[in-house]
Design a protein around this nucleic acid. Structure first.
Lengths: 184, 184
DNA sequence: TAGTAACCCATTGACGCCCAAATATGCCCA
DNA sequence: TGGGCATATTTGGGCGTCAATGGGTTACTA
Protein backbone atom coordinates (compact mmCIF):
# COMPACT_ATOMS: atom_id res chain seq x y z
CA UNK A 1 0.00 0.00 0.00
CA UNK A 2 1.33 3.34 1.00
CA UNK A 3 4.90 3.92 1.96
CA UNK A 4 6.59 0.68 2.74
CA UNK A 5 9.06 1.41 5.32
CA UNK A 6 8.39 4.17 7.65
CA UNK A 7 8.98 1.94 10.50
CA UNK A 8 11.54 2.79 13.02
CA UNK A 9 10.51 6.37 13.27
CA UNK A 10 11.48 6.40 16.84
CA UNK A 11 13.05 4.51 19.61
CA UNK A 12 10.88 1.73 20.71
CA UNK A 13 11.84 0.78 24.10
CA UNK A 14 13.90 2.51 26.68
CA UNK A 15 15.01 0.91 29.85
CA UNK A 16 14.26 3.17 32.73
CA UNK A 17 17.25 1.92 34.58
CA UNK A 18 15.30 -0.25 36.95
CA UNK A 19 13.31 -3.04 35.40
CA UNK A 20 10.17 -1.91 33.68
CA UNK A 21 10.77 -1.04 30.06
CA UNK A 22 9.03 1.89 28.46
CA UNK A 23 7.42 1.13 25.15
CA UNK A 24 7.56 4.09 22.83
CA UNK A 25 7.34 4.89 19.16
CA UNK A 26 5.67 3.35 16.16
CA UNK A 27 6.40 0.36 13.95
CA UNK A 28 4.64 -0.96 10.88
CA UNK A 29 4.85 -4.64 9.93
CA UNK A 30 3.11 -6.83 7.39
CA UNK A 31 0.64 -9.63 7.87
CA UNK A 32 1.67 -12.64 5.82
CA UNK A 33 -0.50 -15.12 4.01
CA UNK A 34 -0.93 -17.16 7.16
CA UNK A 35 -2.07 -14.18 9.16
CA UNK A 36 1.16 -13.76 11.07
CA UNK A 37 2.74 -10.45 12.06
CA UNK A 38 6.04 -9.85 13.76
CA UNK A 39 5.72 -8.00 17.02
CA UNK A 40 8.44 -5.33 16.91
CA UNK A 41 11.52 -6.64 18.64
CA UNK A 42 11.70 -3.76 21.11
CA UNK A 43 8.13 -4.33 22.28
CA UNK A 44 8.62 -8.05 22.41
CA UNK A 45 11.70 -7.72 24.55
CA UNK A 46 10.13 -5.11 26.72
CA UNK A 47 7.18 -7.26 27.65
CA UNK A 48 8.95 -10.56 28.06
CA UNK A 49 11.74 -9.03 30.04
CA UNK A 50 9.25 -7.75 32.57
CA UNK A 51 8.16 -11.22 33.51
CA UNK A 52 10.94 -13.64 32.78
CA UNK A 53 9.56 -16.37 34.94
CA UNK A 54 6.23 -16.37 33.18
CA UNK A 55 5.29 -19.63 31.60
CA UNK A 56 3.40 -17.91 28.80
CA UNK A 57 5.53 -16.52 25.98
CA UNK A 58 3.19 -14.14 24.27
CA UNK A 59 0.86 -11.22 24.82
CA UNK A 60 -2.80 -10.51 25.43
CA UNK A 61 -4.85 -8.38 23.08
CA UNK A 62 -8.37 -7.04 23.40
CA UNK A 63 -10.37 -4.42 21.51
CA UNK A 64 -10.27 -0.88 22.81
CA UNK A 65 -13.79 0.31 23.53
CA UNK A 66 -12.77 3.86 22.84
CA UNK A 67 -10.97 3.49 19.52
CA UNK A 68 -10.92 1.25 16.50
CA UNK A 69 -7.70 -0.20 17.83
CA UNK A 70 -6.41 -3.05 19.99
CA UNK A 71 -4.83 -2.89 23.40
CA UNK A 72 -1.96 -5.26 23.94
CA UNK A 73 -0.25 -6.08 27.20
CA UNK A 74 1.63 -8.86 28.91
CA UNK A 75 0.28 -11.54 31.16
CA UNK A 76 0.95 -9.81 34.45
CA UNK A 77 -0.89 -6.74 33.27
CA UNK A 78 -3.84 -8.84 32.15
CA UNK A 79 -3.80 -10.74 35.42
CA UNK A 80 -3.78 -7.42 37.20
CA UNK A 81 -6.90 -6.37 35.34
CA UNK A 82 -8.55 -9.69 36.03
CA UNK A 83 -7.89 -9.20 39.71
CA UNK A 84 -9.29 -5.70 39.56
CA UNK A 85 -12.45 -7.13 38.07
CA UNK A 86 -12.46 -9.72 40.81
CA UNK A 87 -12.39 -6.99 43.39
CA UNK A 88 -15.77 -5.85 42.20
CA UNK A 89 -18.84 -7.49 43.69
CA UNK A 90 -19.35 -10.99 42.46
CA UNK A 91 -22.27 -11.20 40.04
CA UNK A 92 -22.74 -7.42 40.03
CA UNK A 93 -23.68 -5.71 36.79
CA UNK A 94 -20.51 -3.68 36.79
CA UNK A 95 -18.40 -6.73 37.18
CA UNK A 96 -20.19 -8.48 34.38
CA UNK A 97 -19.73 -5.57 32.03
CA UNK A 98 -16.06 -5.10 32.70
CA UNK A 99 -15.50 -8.81 32.54
CA UNK A 100 -17.34 -8.87 29.28
CA UNK A 101 -15.48 -5.99 27.74
CA UNK A 102 -11.99 -6.91 28.83
CA UNK A 103 -11.60 -10.53 29.82
CA UNK A 104 -14.04 -12.10 27.44
CA UNK A 105 -12.70 -10.17 24.51
CA UNK A 106 -9.10 -10.80 25.37
CA UNK A 107 -7.10 -13.16 23.21
CA UNK A 108 -3.87 -14.76 24.35
CA UNK A 109 -1.48 -14.41 21.44
CA UNK A 110 1.48 -16.75 21.78
CA UNK A 111 4.70 -15.87 20.01
CA UNK A 112 5.99 -18.26 17.40
CA UNK A 113 9.74 -18.94 17.40
CA UNK A 114 10.30 -15.78 15.36
CA UNK A 115 8.27 -13.54 17.63
CA UNK A 116 5.18 -13.38 15.44
CA UNK A 117 1.53 -13.61 16.51
CA UNK A 118 -1.70 -14.25 14.65
CA UNK A 119 -4.39 -11.64 15.14
CA UNK A 120 -7.86 -13.27 15.35
CA UNK A 121 -10.43 -12.24 12.77
CA UNK A 122 -12.53 -10.66 15.48
CA UNK A 123 -9.73 -8.29 16.40
CA UNK A 124 -8.72 -7.54 12.83
CA UNK A 125 -12.28 -6.54 12.17
CA UNK A 126 -12.59 -4.30 15.20
CA UNK A 127 -9.50 -2.39 14.21
CA UNK A 128 -10.17 -2.47 10.49
CA UNK A 129 -6.81 -4.08 9.87
CA UNK A 130 -5.76 -5.87 6.70
CA UNK A 131 -2.35 -6.17 5.19
CA UNK A 132 -0.36 -3.91 7.44
CA UNK A 133 -0.32 -3.33 11.14
CA UNK A 134 0.92 -0.34 13.10
CA UNK A 135 2.25 -0.94 16.60
CA UNK A 136 2.14 2.11 18.83
CA UNK A 137 3.98 2.15 22.14
CA UNK A 138 2.05 3.28 25.17
CA UNK A 139 4.27 2.90 28.19
CA UNK A 140 4.08 -0.59 29.53
CA UNK A 141 1.52 -1.60 26.93
CA UNK A 142 1.13 -0.88 23.26
CA UNK A 143 -1.72 -0.46 20.82
CA UNK A 144 -2.32 -1.89 17.40
CA UNK A 145 -3.89 0.10 14.59
CA UNK A 146 -4.55 0.06 10.92
CA UNK A 147 -1.85 2.49 9.67
CA UNK A 148 -4.24 4.75 7.82
CA UNK A 149 -6.80 4.83 10.63
CA UNK A 150 -4.06 5.72 13.04
CA UNK A 151 -2.85 8.67 10.98
CA UNK A 152 -6.31 10.16 10.93
CA UNK A 153 -6.79 9.61 14.63
CA UNK A 154 -3.39 11.01 15.42
CA UNK A 155 -3.99 14.08 13.33
CA UNK A 156 -7.25 14.83 15.10
CA UNK A 157 -5.75 14.29 18.53
CA UNK A 158 -2.96 16.66 17.62
CA UNK A 159 -5.41 19.28 16.45
CA UNK A 160 -7.48 18.98 19.58
CA UNK A 161 -4.48 19.26 21.84
CA UNK A 162 -3.26 22.39 20.10
CA UNK A 163 -6.71 23.95 20.00
CA UNK A 164 -7.38 23.39 23.65
CA UNK A 165 -3.92 24.29 24.75
CA UNK A 166 -3.66 20.99 26.54
CA UNK A 167 -1.31 20.73 29.44
CA UNK A 168 0.15 17.78 31.21
CA UNK A 169 -0.21 17.75 34.98
CA UNK A 170 3.08 16.76 36.48
CA UNK A 171 3.85 14.52 39.30
CA UNK A 172 6.84 15.17 41.53
CA UNK A 173 9.88 14.42 39.45
CA UNK A 174 11.69 11.92 41.61
CA UNK A 175 8.88 9.50 42.20
CA UNK A 176 9.61 5.96 41.26
CA UNK A 177 7.44 4.11 38.81
CA UNK A 178 4.13 2.93 40.03
CA UNK A 179 4.78 -0.74 40.55
CA UNK A 180 8.07 -0.39 42.21
CA UNK A 181 7.45 1.09 45.60
CA UNK A 182 5.02 -0.43 48.02
CA UNK A 183 6.76 -3.70 48.18
CA UNK A 184 8.87 -4.93 51.02
CA UNK B 1 -19.21 -13.64 48.70
CA UNK B 2 -15.89 -12.08 48.24
CA UNK B 3 -13.39 -13.07 45.69
CA UNK B 4 -11.27 -15.95 46.61
CA UNK B 5 -8.63 -16.05 44.09
CA UNK B 6 -6.04 -14.10 42.41
CA UNK B 7 -5.49 -16.20 39.40
CA UNK B 8 -6.26 -15.00 35.97
CA UNK B 9 -6.66 -16.26 32.44
CA UNK B 10 -6.85 -15.41 28.82
CA UNK B 11 -8.18 -16.44 25.49
CA UNK B 12 -7.45 -19.69 26.85
CA UNK B 13 -5.34 -20.28 29.77
CA UNK B 14 -2.11 -19.05 31.03
CA UNK B 15 -0.19 -20.21 33.95
CA UNK B 16 0.88 -17.23 35.92
CA UNK B 17 4.07 -18.84 36.91
CA UNK B 18 2.76 -19.52 40.34
CA UNK B 19 -0.41 -21.51 40.42
CA UNK B 20 -3.64 -19.99 39.25
CA UNK B 21 -4.48 -20.05 35.55
CA UNK B 22 -6.18 -17.21 33.76
CA UNK B 23 -9.10 -18.23 31.58
CA UNK B 24 -9.85 -15.64 28.94
CA UNK B 25 -11.30 -15.42 25.49
CA UNK B 26 -13.98 -17.28 23.64
CA UNK B 27 -14.19 -20.62 21.88
CA UNK B 28 -17.01 -22.17 19.87
CA UNK B 29 -17.31 -25.95 19.57
CA UNK B 30 -19.94 -28.31 18.23
CA UNK B 31 -22.20 -30.74 20.01
CA UNK B 32 -22.10 -34.09 18.26
CA UNK B 33 -24.88 -36.57 17.72
CA UNK B 34 -24.22 -38.08 21.13
CA UNK B 35 -24.46 -34.78 22.90
CA UNK B 36 -20.74 -34.41 23.48
CA UNK B 37 -18.78 -31.15 23.29
CA UNK B 38 -15.05 -30.64 23.57
CA UNK B 39 -14.09 -28.30 26.37
CA UNK B 40 -11.46 -25.98 24.84
CA UNK B 41 -8.00 -27.28 25.60
CA UNK B 42 -6.86 -24.08 27.29
CA UNK B 43 -9.78 -24.13 29.71
CA UNK B 44 -9.41 -27.81 30.33
CA UNK B 45 -5.76 -27.43 31.15
CA UNK B 46 -6.36 -24.36 33.22
CA UNK B 47 -8.83 -26.01 35.50
CA UNK B 48 -7.11 -29.35 35.86
CA UNK B 49 -3.76 -27.76 36.39
CA UNK B 50 -5.10 -25.80 39.30
CA UNK B 51 -5.95 -28.93 41.21
CA UNK B 52 -3.70 -31.73 40.09
CA UNK B 53 -4.42 -33.83 43.11
CA UNK B 54 -8.12 -33.62 42.53
CA UNK B 55 -9.92 -36.89 42.44
CA UNK B 56 -12.47 -35.68 39.94
CA UNK B 57 -11.41 -35.24 36.31
CA UNK B 58 -14.08 -32.92 35.05
CA UNK B 59 -15.93 -29.72 35.83
CA UNK B 60 -19.05 -28.52 37.58
CA UNK B 61 -21.77 -26.60 35.78
CA UNK B 62 -24.85 -24.84 37.04
CA UNK B 63 -27.28 -22.37 35.47
CA UNK B 64 -26.52 -18.69 35.83
CA UNK B 65 -29.37 -16.95 37.60
CA UNK B 66 -28.63 -13.70 35.80
CA UNK B 67 -28.20 -14.86 32.25
CA UNK B 68 -29.37 -17.57 29.92
CA UNK B 69 -25.97 -19.16 30.35
CA UNK B 70 -24.13 -21.73 32.43
CA UNK B 71 -21.41 -21.17 34.97
CA UNK B 72 -18.64 -23.71 34.89
CA UNK B 73 -15.85 -24.15 37.38
CA UNK B 74 -13.61 -26.75 38.88
CA UNK B 75 -14.13 -28.74 42.00
CA UNK B 76 -12.26 -26.43 44.34
CA UNK B 77 -14.25 -23.44 43.18
CA UNK B 78 -17.49 -25.31 43.71
CA UNK B 79 -16.31 -26.32 47.16
CA UNK B 80 -15.52 -22.71 47.90
CA UNK B 81 -19.02 -21.63 46.92
CA UNK B 82 -20.52 -24.36 49.05
CA UNK B 83 -18.54 -23.07 51.99
CA UNK B 84 -19.64 -19.54 51.26
CA UNK B 85 -23.24 -20.68 51.36
CA UNK B 86 -22.50 -22.33 54.66
CA UNK B 87 -21.24 -19.06 56.00
CA UNK B 88 -24.60 -17.43 55.39
CA UNK B 89 -27.14 -17.49 58.17
CA UNK B 90 -28.38 -20.98 58.63
CA UNK B 91 -31.93 -21.49 57.43
CA UNK B 92 -32.17 -17.92 56.16
CA UNK B 93 -34.04 -17.34 52.94
CA UNK B 94 -30.86 -16.10 51.35
CA UNK B 95 -29.04 -19.27 52.19
CA UNK B 96 -31.86 -21.39 50.91
CA UNK B 97 -31.93 -19.46 47.70
CA UNK B 98 -28.24 -19.61 47.01
CA UNK B 99 -28.21 -23.23 47.94
CA UNK B 100 -31.01 -24.13 45.61
CA UNK B 101 -29.77 -21.94 42.80
CA UNK B 102 -26.18 -23.07 42.85
CA UNK B 103 -25.67 -26.29 44.71
CA UNK B 104 -28.87 -28.06 43.87
CA UNK B 105 -28.61 -27.28 40.21
CA UNK B 106 -24.97 -28.09 39.83
CA UNK B 107 -23.99 -30.99 37.63
CA UNK B 108 -20.64 -32.73 37.74
CA UNK B 109 -19.49 -33.15 34.14
CA UNK B 110 -16.74 -35.74 33.79
CA UNK B 111 -14.33 -35.49 30.88
CA UNK B 112 -14.19 -38.37 28.45
CA UNK B 113 -10.74 -39.45 27.22
CA UNK B 114 -10.77 -36.67 24.62
CA UNK B 115 -11.75 -33.93 27.03
CA UNK B 116 -15.42 -33.77 26.09
CA UNK B 117 -18.45 -33.48 28.37
CA UNK B 118 -22.15 -34.03 27.90
CA UNK B 119 -24.37 -31.12 28.88
CA UNK B 120 -27.57 -32.32 30.60
CA UNK B 121 -30.86 -31.43 28.92
CA UNK B 122 -31.77 -29.24 31.88
CA UNK B 123 -28.74 -27.07 31.30
CA UNK B 124 -29.05 -26.99 27.54
CA UNK B 125 -32.56 -25.74 27.95
CA UNK B 126 -31.66 -23.03 30.42
CA UNK B 127 -29.05 -21.63 28.07
CA UNK B 128 -31.04 -22.22 24.91
CA UNK B 129 -28.18 -24.22 23.46
CA UNK B 130 -28.43 -26.54 20.50
CA UNK B 131 -25.83 -27.44 17.97
CA UNK B 132 -23.05 -25.08 18.93
CA UNK B 133 -21.64 -23.98 22.25
CA UNK B 134 -19.63 -20.91 23.09
CA UNK B 135 -17.17 -21.13 25.96
CA UNK B 136 -16.34 -17.77 27.50
CA UNK B 137 -13.39 -17.35 29.83
CA UNK B 138 -13.95 -15.42 33.01
CA UNK B 139 -10.80 -15.59 35.06
CA UNK B 140 -10.67 -18.79 36.96
CA UNK B 141 -13.95 -20.13 35.67
CA UNK B 142 -15.81 -19.89 32.40
CA UNK B 143 -19.34 -19.59 31.11
CA UNK B 144 -21.21 -21.46 28.43
CA UNK B 145 -23.60 -19.74 26.05
CA UNK B 146 -25.52 -20.21 22.88
CA UNK B 147 -23.29 -18.31 20.39
CA UNK B 148 -26.00 -16.05 19.11
CA UNK B 149 -27.39 -15.24 22.54
CA UNK B 150 -23.92 -14.37 23.73
CA UNK B 151 -23.27 -11.97 20.87
CA UNK B 152 -26.33 -9.98 21.74
CA UNK B 153 -25.44 -9.88 25.40
CA UNK B 154 -21.85 -8.94 24.68
CA UNK B 155 -22.83 -6.19 22.29
CA UNK B 156 -24.97 -4.56 24.93
CA UNK B 157 -22.27 -4.79 27.59
CA UNK B 158 -19.78 -3.23 25.21
CA UNK B 159 -22.15 -0.39 24.42
CA UNK B 160 -22.83 0.25 28.08
CA UNK B 161 -19.13 0.35 28.83
CA UNK B 162 -18.44 2.78 26.03
CA UNK B 163 -21.45 4.94 26.82
CA UNK B 164 -20.70 5.24 30.51
CA UNK B 165 -17.04 5.72 29.90
CA UNK B 166 -16.50 2.79 32.16
CA UNK B 167 -13.28 2.67 34.04
CA UNK B 168 -11.79 -0.18 35.92
CA UNK B 169 -11.00 0.61 39.52
CA UNK B 170 -7.52 -0.73 39.82
CA UNK B 171 -6.12 -2.31 42.84
CA UNK B 172 -2.64 -1.10 43.69
CA UNK B 173 -0.32 -2.51 41.11
CA UNK B 174 1.63 -5.21 42.73
CA UNK B 175 3.40 -7.52 40.39
CA UNK B 176 2.98 -10.47 42.64
CA UNK B 177 -0.15 -12.52 42.47
CA UNK B 178 -2.57 -11.77 45.19
CA UNK B 179 -2.27 -14.96 47.15
CA UNK B 180 1.41 -14.98 47.11
CA UNK B 181 2.70 -12.19 49.28
CA UNK B 182 0.84 -10.83 52.23
CA UNK B 183 0.31 -14.16 53.79
CA UNK B 184 2.68 -15.61 56.28
C1' DT C 1 -32.85 -56.50 25.84
C1' DA C 2 -33.13 -51.67 24.96
C1' DG C 3 -30.85 -47.59 26.27
C1' DT C 4 -27.08 -45.14 28.12
C1' DA C 5 -22.42 -44.35 29.34
C1' DA C 6 -17.35 -44.81 29.03
C1' DC C 7 -13.47 -45.95 26.07
C1' DC C 8 -10.81 -46.71 21.93
C1' DC C 9 -9.73 -45.45 17.07
C1' DA C 10 -9.48 -43.01 12.82
C1' DT C 11 -9.93 -38.61 10.19
C1' DT C 12 -9.49 -33.71 9.34
C1' DG C 13 -7.63 -29.48 9.67
C1' DA C 14 -5.59 -25.68 12.28
C1' DC C 15 -1.59 -24.35 14.71
C1' DG C 16 3.17 -24.38 16.17
C1' DC C 17 8.02 -25.31 14.87
C1' DC C 18 12.00 -25.42 11.91
C1' DC C 19 14.72 -23.71 8.16
C1' DA C 20 15.89 -20.43 4.55
C1' DA C 21 15.69 -15.91 1.96
C1' DA C 22 15.12 -11.07 1.93
C1' DT C 23 15.61 -6.66 4.31
C1' DA C 24 17.03 -3.41 7.69
C1' DT C 25 20.19 -1.37 11.01
C1' DG C 26 24.54 -0.38 13.10
C1' DC C 27 29.45 -0.30 12.85
C1' DC C 28 34.01 0.23 10.78
C1' DC C 29 37.08 2.04 7.67
C1' DA C 30 38.66 4.73 4.02
C1' DT D 1 31.09 11.72 5.54
C1' DG D 2 29.90 7.92 2.31
C1' DG D 3 30.28 3.06 1.13
C1' DG D 4 30.42 -1.59 2.36
C1' DC D 5 30.16 -5.34 5.46
C1' DA D 6 28.40 -8.04 9.47
C1' DT D 7 24.49 -8.80 12.23
C1' DA D 8 19.80 -8.64 13.66
C1' DT D 9 14.78 -8.70 12.13
C1' DT D 10 11.23 -9.43 9.36
C1' DT D 11 9.09 -12.53 5.85
C1' DG D 12 7.96 -16.82 3.41
C1' DG D 13 6.92 -21.65 3.33
C1' DG D 14 6.98 -26.64 4.19
C1' DC D 15 5.82 -30.10 7.54
C1' DG D 16 4.77 -32.48 11.70
C1' DT D 17 1.84 -32.55 15.86
C1' DC D 18 -2.12 -31.91 18.48
C1' DA D 19 -6.96 -30.63 19.31
C1' DA D 20 -11.64 -31.14 17.66
C1' DT D 21 -14.85 -34.47 15.59
C1' DG D 22 -17.25 -38.64 14.23
C1' DG D 23 -18.19 -43.40 14.97
C1' DG D 24 -17.93 -48.13 16.41
C1' DT D 25 -17.75 -51.33 20.44
C1' DT D 26 -18.11 -52.96 24.87
C1' DA D 27 -19.70 -52.64 29.72
C1' DC D 28 -23.52 -51.36 32.70
C1' DT D 29 -28.23 -50.28 34.11
C1' DA D 30 -32.84 -50.51 34.24
Amino acid sequence: MANRRSKTDAGSEVSLGSEMPLLVGKHVNKIDRKGRVSVPKPFRDGLLEAEPRSSFAGVYAFPSFKFPALEVCDESYMAWMAESVDDMDLFSDEQDDMSSVILENAHPLPFDPEGRVVLPAELLEHAGISGEVMFVGSGERFRVWDPETYREHSKKAFERARASGATLPRRPRDRRRRDEGSQP
